[in-house]
Design a protein around this nucleic acid. Structure first.
Lengths: 189, 189
DNA sequence: GAAACCATTTGCCATTTGGCAAAAAGTGAT
DNA sequence: ATCACTTTTTGCCAAATGGCAAATGGTTTC
């Protein structure tokens, strides 16, 4: 819980009272390895903040292959469709790669925070913008690189993930096969 | 100008008075083919809306190659860093692929609109969110596809661009060489 | 129409990656 | 230590892509 507050404070100020309110609206939950946080087609009713673990976001392409879109690390907010207003039904899956801990808010509680805390929306908006920027930048570079460059880039950008994420998922994120990734790793050493 | 208003109206309501205000703050400009709209390192002082033409967004990688990040089509907003508040110095270039027409607002005028029109920020936020979503989705798919799939996808998603954008730029966007793209095109027919 | 210029295609060969299956290495439970 | 299971590495060969240079096609200018 503390992690979440500290994270928020990076993007704006909150007084003790506001922090208490946020805390009172939150629930802490755990997710075991390989459990889903979201499933495609099932309505999302929560806003979550990942305090521990790694989550993988993926979908199935028209050949039935799992494509990893990105990874969510500790200290990242998990929002549905960037707005809490509407009912949101994702087309992708979020599943825990490691055991995870999250702080979650029901949509109603989240709306209450938005309505009560001045500046809340602005803080959240900044966070969303930041995450978007990161995701786009990472993806754009991938396309123009060959497998080796992609992997080196991955190591550099996600040093905390390399040893926690199965290589098959990394390969799927990088858009190469697992065997290719394995060969690439051999050549790098 | 009218295009811009119509575009805005898709994301929220505006009354006649508000529309007049927006119009009064806007300037229409033209951009000739190959002229820059932004250059890396030069401060951006405008918010623009592209009413005609195609703009290419690119940067240089560490090998000095031009990498096309994406294309901007008609009826898209061109914002710096997603917020107008701060001084923004881009690290990428925006250059006109065809002759272009834009509606532009000085930062000051844009702020005035934000301060005067209730709901303005919310409209803009929706637009930004939408564009972000589009960009991420497009990029994510590219990574997991081979050249042929990427090109077919490109044709499908940007039918209006295929015949207006030089193949070298498309190749750079797709992350393949121009020769490869040429061969791919031959095989498709 | 010829010349100059730019965009696109092609040929040739080296390199990378994919696909598939088997081997090897690592992990966990008994 | 052994067995069962999962993850990662390899080998083999086919297919895709890159790099480079030359050829072709198209457009503009004079």
């Amino acid at each position: 819980m503390e992690e979440f507050i500290n994270y928020l404070l990076q993007f704006g100020n909150l007084n003790k009272q506001q922090i208490d309110l946020i805390t009172s609206k939150a629930t802490e939950i755990e997710l075991k390895k390989d459990e889903y946080y979201w499933e495609a087609g099932k309505t999302v009713r929560q806003v979550g903040f990942l305090t521990d673990g790694v989550i993988r976001v993926f979908y199935y392409n028209n050949k039935g292959e799992e494509i990893t879109r990105y990874f969510i690390e500790e200290n990242h907010l998990i929002l549905s469709g960037n707005t809490v207003d509407e009912v949101f039904t994702p087309s992708e899956y979020l599943s825990a790669i490691t055991d995870c801990k999250l702080v979650v808010f029901s949509k109603q509680n989240w709306k209450d925070l938005s309505a009560t805390i001045i500046g809340w929306d602005s803080i959240i908006q900044k966070i969303i913008t930041k995450h978007h920027g990161e995701k786009i930048a990472r993806r754009s570079e991938l396309v123009s690189q060959d497998g080796t460059e992609r992997y080196l880039d991955f190591i550099e950008k996600f040093p905390t993930l390399v040893n926690r994420v199965p290589l098959s998922y990394i390969a799927s994120y990088l858009g190469i096969t697992q065997s290719s990734l394995s060969r690439i790793r051999k050549n790098i050493r």
